[in-house]
């Protein structure tokens, strides 16, 4: 053997030669581990504080929703002294309250379906082909994502009045397409560009027609992209209020608009207001929980 200190190639069959050891003091070692380039030991404090800051106002709302109005106005208590579900009962028993949720969900789902349905072929076109004016078109779509809703509120009202669509779910769903369709095209185009073109070509050679190829092969490949796009469509339609409120009066009014109206009418029913607020947080929380594994990936594309 060429090397002096090799004991045996059969690892561990012989004791190792004991070289002189000078063990560094444990204090030195601890300091060394924390040295430059390593994250400090208290890194987790930063996200922890941030999350605490995020949760605190929500906690206060939840806390209030289980209190009576006397307790809310009377004493400042960190948890309900006299917990009550009365506030929630008010909402669940009064159709003018709970219908708001149904309205919101109807137009949000409608909008998500419409947005994804029209965005899919368009995103495919943008990701696979070049055509006359494609870049300008893409930019123009993008500007609509950036359009201030305040600018559009009044013209929307007049437009949908002219078509007799005021106070219908479809009106809100269509209006929200203004910002959700460009967004969906953008996200889907990113995912589609990640699918190699050879897959399309192979499918055509194998005799697939375009619609069959698109639904049977292509859509499953970008399923996570569709999920991410649907998530963001849902999110932006769910949180928008200005346009939704402008286009509805009673039959299709979203819950968030009903909340403001009832508060201004009945004065200071803080408990019910808090309960209604809590209930609007729940659908969003559920949706995030279901897509939690895709969120980072959707953002990773840098396309939102």
């Amino acid at each position: 053997m060429a090397d002096a200190n090799v004991t045996s190639p059969r690892a561990g069959s012989l004791p190792a030669p004991g070289p002189a050891v000078t063990k560094a003091g444990s204090g030195d070692v601890a300091r060394a581990m924390r040295r430059r380039g390593d994250q400090s030991r208290f890194w987790w404090l930063i996200p922890a504080f941030y999350i605490a800051f995020l949760i605190l106002p929500i906690y206060w709302l939840v806390n209030m929703s289980f209190k009576t109005n006397q307790e809310i106005l009377g004493t400042l208590s960190l948890w309900p002294r006299d917990p009550t579900i009365h506030n929630y009962m008010v909402i669940f028993t009064d159709p003018s309250w709970y219908k708001g949720y149904i309205n919101s969900i109807i137009y949000v789902v409608l909008n998500t379906v419409i947005s994804i349905a029209v965005a899919l072929p368009a995103a495919y076109a943008f990701s696979r082909y070049r055509f006359l004016g494609d870049k300008h078109l893409f930019f123009w779509l993008l500007t609509n994502r950036m359009a201030p809703p305040a600018v559009f509120a009044l013209p929307f009202f007049q437009l949908y009045s002219a078509f007799g669509l005021i106070d219908t779910h479809i009106a809100v769903a269509l209006a929200h397409c203004l910002f959700n369709v460009p967004l969906a095209v953008w996200i889907l185009e990113g995912f589609m560009s990640g699918v190699p073109k050879e897959i399309d070509e192979t499918a055509y050679i194998d005799g697939y027609s375009f619609p069959r190829f698109f639904t049977k092969i292509f859509m499953p490949l970008i399923a996570s992209g569709i999920g991410v796009a649907a998530f963001f469509c849902f999110m932006f339609s769910w949180v928008e209020l200005l346009i939704a409120r402008t286009l509805t009066t009673t039959n299709a009014k979203p819950i968030s608009a009903i909340m403001t109206r009832t508060v201004s009418a009945s004065g200071l029913d803080w408990g019910v207001l808090a309960a209604a607020g809590v209930l609007t947080i729940i659908p969003g929380a559920l949706v995030i929980w279901f897509v939690r594994n895709y969120i980072a990936r959707g953002f990773a594309l840098g396309r939102v």
Partner: peptide, 16 residues
């Protein structure tokens, strides 16, 4: 353990 010239460096950082 890992030793450099007989000094135990197992707990030392890459830089050191």
């Amino acid at each position: 353990r890992l030793l450099f010239d007989g000094h135990d460096v197992t707990d030392l950082s890459t830089q050191e």
